[in-house]
Amino acid sequence: MQKGLHDDEEGQGRLAPEASVAMATLVRRLHRFSPGADLTPLNHAFQQLRSLDRDEPVWRHKSEDHPVLVLESGFAYSFTLYPDGRRHIGDMFGPGALCGFGSAAVAEEGLNLAFKSGSRVTVFDAARLADALHEKPELELLFKQDGDARARRTAQRNRGLISLPAAEKLALVLLDLREELSLATDPGEWLPLPLTLRELGDLTGLTDVHVSRTLKKLQTDGMLERRGKRFRMGDTAALESALDYRHFYYG
């Protein structure tokens, strides 16, 4: 992890008493696939819980070994930088999410992560986590199901970002954001909008100005309400039907 991450608990070499608390959102997320599944073996892979006091990038490379990061609270996204300086945001992570873990993470050269200020991150030792998953296949299956659901949702979003008009693109991203923030917590009817206009542009391929105009259009059309940095979707069922939107985490 990069400078700027501060240790809340030094858990290396022993089981920290805060381990179960630190992994609470991951447990709730994985229990969506198998309620009541025993996740206690994860305790032995726990290293520490870290907090971020500012937006912080974490640079990752395929040739290096990295600890496994789980977002306990806050928000993060993965991104790639192109030679011409452009940035593309490929995916987003809410509470309980495994960040940059699995086949999708290693398949893309130069995959990096950016954690938003105020986030808390659980750090797993990668080798001990691999051992825990190997020794308990049912736990490994839960990780696979989570990864498969994320990959299918990303593919659904990417198809829309290629083919849909700007308003539908942004609506699709907001639906994904709404789901991601709700998988391990109950944020209520009004949700935080953790991405800036630029970040939304890097995700959708739109300019900052176009994102701003499109958000206003969604509000005018009754598809979106905004209060500062919080938002609420309009008729979500109708919007999901119009976009043929599927929830891969809910079956």
Rank of each mutant, 00 (worst) to 15 (best):
G94V: 03
H88T: 11
K116Q: 09
M223S: 13
S117M: 07
A151V: 08
P57E: 07
D202G: 04
D176Q: 12
H6C: 04
R157F: 05
L30N: 03
G11Y: 00
R50F: 07
A171I: 05
G4R: 06
C99E: 03
D131W: 09
R60A: 03
D7T: 13
Q2I: 11
L81W: 08
G85T: 06
E225P: 00
T154V: 13
L71A: 02
V209T: 11
E18N: 11
A130E: 08
L98T: 01
N43G: 06
G85R: 12
K136R: 15
L175N: 02
L174M: 07
A238M: 12
A166N: 11
Q12D: 07
Y245F: 15
R159F: 12
R198I: 04
A171T: 10
L49A: 06
V68Y: 04
L181V: 05
A76C: 06
G85D: 06
L26M: 12
D186K: 14
G102H: 06
K144Q: 15
A22T: 01
A126C: 03
K62H: 13
G90Q: 13
A126G: 00
L203P: 01
E225I: 00
Q47G: 03
P187V: 06
D53G: 12
L181G: 01
P17N: 04
A114F: 14
S34Q: 15
G90R: 14
H31A: 08
A166L: 07
A242E: 15
H66A: 05
L191C: 09
L81H: 12
P187S: 07
P57W: 07
A237T: 15
L203S: 02
A242N: 13
Q2W: 10
Q12E: 12
L141I: 08
K229H: 14
D146K: 02
D53A: 14
G74L: 02
F101A: 03
A104L: 15
G96V: 02
K136G: 00
D208P: 03
Y245C: 02
R213M: 07
L195K: 06
W59N: 08
G234P: 05
R226S: 06
L111Q: 14
T214D: 07
G110H: 14
T154K: 15
A76W: 02
Q145S: 06
A238V: 09
R230L: 06
G102E: 05
T80W: 04
E240D: 04
E72Y: 10
L111D: 09
Q145W: 06
R178C: 09
A76S: 11
H210D: 00
K62L: 13
E138K: 12
D186R: 15
D208H: 10
S73K: 15
E108P: 00
N112K: 09
L206F: 08
R232H: 14
T154Y: 10
A97C: 06
E168I: 04
V209E: 08
Y249A: 00
A16V: 05
D244I: 09
L181D: 01
R87Q: 14
D55K: 04
L200T: 03
L164D: 11
G118K: 05
T122G: 02
Q12S: 10
A105R: 04
G94T: 04
P57Y: 07
T40P: 01
F46Q: 03
P41C: 03
F79Q: 06
Y77I: 01
R28G: 01
T204I: 04
L193K: 04
L42P: 01
L161T: 11
F101K: 01
S51F: 13
E180G: 04
N43Y: 13
T196V: 05
R157S: 05
R152V: 07
